[in-house]
Every structure is written in structure tokens, then in C-alpha cells.
Design a protein around this nucleic acid. Structure first.
Length: 300
DNA sequence: GTCCAGGAAGAAA
DNA sequence: TTTCTTCATGGA
């Protein structure tokens, strides 16, 4: 197939390299491949997975279709996916204006300039990832995710590289919990993952049904009604998958550490200082969280 | 050996 | 309603 490229525009400030770096962070991520100056991902367009290569371009992102059917609508679907994933066209200047007014955070626009909130478009993947990441360090969490993806997800090999799709709910719904347990998932996480997968597979919940609910609280409730999804996971999924700008994964270990290191709170139970800070970022809470998470890692 | 990781559910107080 | 206990393992 002759590869075809097109440009996905971005609004300033946008840094492909900041986004690319965050997608990597030195972790063993299996859902995309980080190469010098570029990112490759097998993207699950409906009924037509395509392998895309993304790199920096003066006007935004240059996307190249490497493998997969280039049918009518493929380009539009890929554009939509990348927007949902990396949000290059989002105008983040209002967020930067807020950052600049908080002395402890005023360095961020220069330090992390152009970074976007990196999304997880697939709601099931976002929820599964939140379950996997509960109460374990990220390095271990990425290892668990890789085992699950390599065992139950579809994959595509080309050029000596293997690209993965996240396992489908219908597949995970029938997974053997003992097999997850053998992969060092806790027994509970195995139950949670399979249970949530069954809810998706049976049609009791989907991204579209969640979006159809009126308001944040109804959506939050729909998620926390799932066994294994507490308030942290619900907010995480709403932030990463729905891109709800007002969601904060309160109590998140990394978030609290970042707030402490910036001396924005006195201790981890200093809720008044947190609320005061979040009020200053009304409508940009998720971005504040994303940048605080970014600050936890030292760019090498 | 100790303590903490991008927590949640169920029991107990 | 709030606070403990358990789950389970890796990394510092």
C-alpha cells in the first residue's frame, strides 16, 4: 500500500515532542511505539485498524498511514481519533494564563510548553488501566498491562515491530481469572477487570451511553456503580477518556506528591488549600492534574 | 526490614 | 458516616 501523509493542524502552543515524551516517560508502554521524533500506533478505527506514524510538523502533526485500509472516511476518522487522543487543536492559552498567576506553577508554560492532556479514547481501556494501576507503582502496572494486552489483544506485526490493540471487552469477559492471577494480577483485580468487561460486552455500559447521560454526577455514578471502579478510577476515566475538563482524581498518590513538592498544600489532608487551588483552575482542573503529573517526571 | 505505589470493597466502629 | 482491614507485589 502506498503510504499517504496529511497534516493535522495544532493551535499554538503545541509541542509534539512534549506529548511524545509523555507518551513514553521511560515506561514499558505496549499501546504505542516511541521512535526518535515520532510515535507509531495501531489505531482502532471502527472496523478498520490502521497503523499510523505521527511526527512533528510546523503546522501541527504529520500523520502517515503505514498499514491498513485507506478507505473513504479513513482520514477523517484518523483525524478525529488523534484529536481525541492528543487534542492538538485545543486552545490551552486560557490554562497558561491561570498557571502564570500561581507563583509555584508559573514556570510550567515554559518548562512543559505545548503539552496536551494525553487521552485514552477507549473507555474500556481507560477503566481497565485505572484498575490495573490501583495501589501499585506505575512500572509494575505497565508490566501487568503488557501481559494482558499480549495475551488477549489483537496484534499486528510489521517491520520487525509488533503493534497491539487493547483487548476487546467481549474477549476479556471470557478470560480465566486464574490466568490473570498467574500474571500477578491480584484476585480482586482479575474479578474487577472481567466484571467491567462483561458490563461492556453485555451493552450495559458504553462510551456513547455514558456521554448520553446528563451531567457529570450521573456519569460519575454510572462508573462507580461498576465493581472495582471507585471515585478515583471514575474521575480518571472521565478525565482521560471523556476529556472532562473539570474532573480531578482526588487522592491520587502522584497528584498529592506533586501538590506537596510545589508547596501548594501543607500535607496530604490539606483539603482547603486544594479546593482553593482548584477554584483558580475552574474548567481546567484536568489540565492542572496533567501538568502536575508531568512535573513528577524529570525529563532526561 | 520498612514504607509507599496514579485504590477499592467489605467489615467494623 | 467514618475508619479499619485486606488484597498482593515491586521498587526505593
Amino acid at each position: 500500500m502506498p503510504s499517504r501523509s496529511f497534516i493535522i493542524p495544532a493551535s499554538d502552543p503545541f509541542s509534539f515532542d512534549e506529548c511524545r515524551w509523555f507518551l513514553d516517560r521511560g515506561f514499558d508502554e505496549c499501546m504505542h511505539t516511541i521512535l526518535p521524533g515520532r510515535v507509531r500506533k495501531l489505531i482502532p478505527l471502527p472496523g478498520n485498524p490502521v497503523l499510523a506514524d505521527l511526527r512533528e510538523h510546523p503546522d501541527g502533526i504529520e500523520a502517515t498511514l503505514l498499514e491498513g485500509k485507506d478507505a473513504t472516511g479513513t482520514e477523517a476518522a484518523l483525524r478525529a481519533y488523534v484529536q481525541d487522543w492528543l487534542a492538538p487543536q485545543e486552545d490551552i492559552l486560557p490554562f497558561y494564563a491561570r498557571l502564570s498567576k500561581v507563583p509555584a506553577l508559573a514556570y510550567m508554560p515554559a518548562a512543559f510548553g505545548g503539552l496536551r492532556l494525553i487521552g485514552i479514547p477507549d473507555l474500556f481501556e481507560a477503566l481497565a488501566w485505572s484498575i490495573i494501576g490501583q495501589q501499585i507503582n506505575l512500572r509494575f502496572a505497565y508490566r501487568l498491562k503488557r501481559r494482558m494486552v499480549e495475551r488477549w489483544g489483537e496484534s499486528y506485526e510489521t517491520g520487525g515491530e509488533v503493534y497491539h490493540l487493547f483487548p476487546q471487552p467481549a474477549v476479556m469477559a471470557n478470560a480465566d481469572p486464574a490466568e490473570l492471577r498467574a500474571m500477578q494480577f491480584t484476585g480482586r483485580k482479575a474479578e474487577y477487570l472481567i466484571g467491567v468487561a462483561q458490563q461492556f460486552a453485555s451493552g450495559n455500559i458504553s462510551k456513547s451511553s455514558l456521554l448520553a447521560l446528563p451531567g457529570l454526577e450521573a456519569r460519575r455514578r454510572a462508573l462507580t456503580d461498576l465493581r472495582g471502579i471507585g471515585i478515583w478510577s471514575a474521575n480518571y476515566a472521565l478525565m482521560k477518556s471523556i476529556r472532562d475538563a473539570t474532573c480531578i482524581p482526588h487522592g491520587d498518590a502522584g497528584l498529592l506528591n506533586a501538590l506537596l513538592s510545589h508547596q501548594l498544600i501543607a500535607d496530604k489532608s490539606d483539603h482547603p488549600s486544594m479546593e482553593k487551588l482548584y477554584r483558580r483552575f475552574k474548567g481546567w482542573e484536568s489540565y492542572l492534574v496533567a501538568y502536575l503529573w508531568r512535573s513528577l517526571a524529570v525529563k532526561s
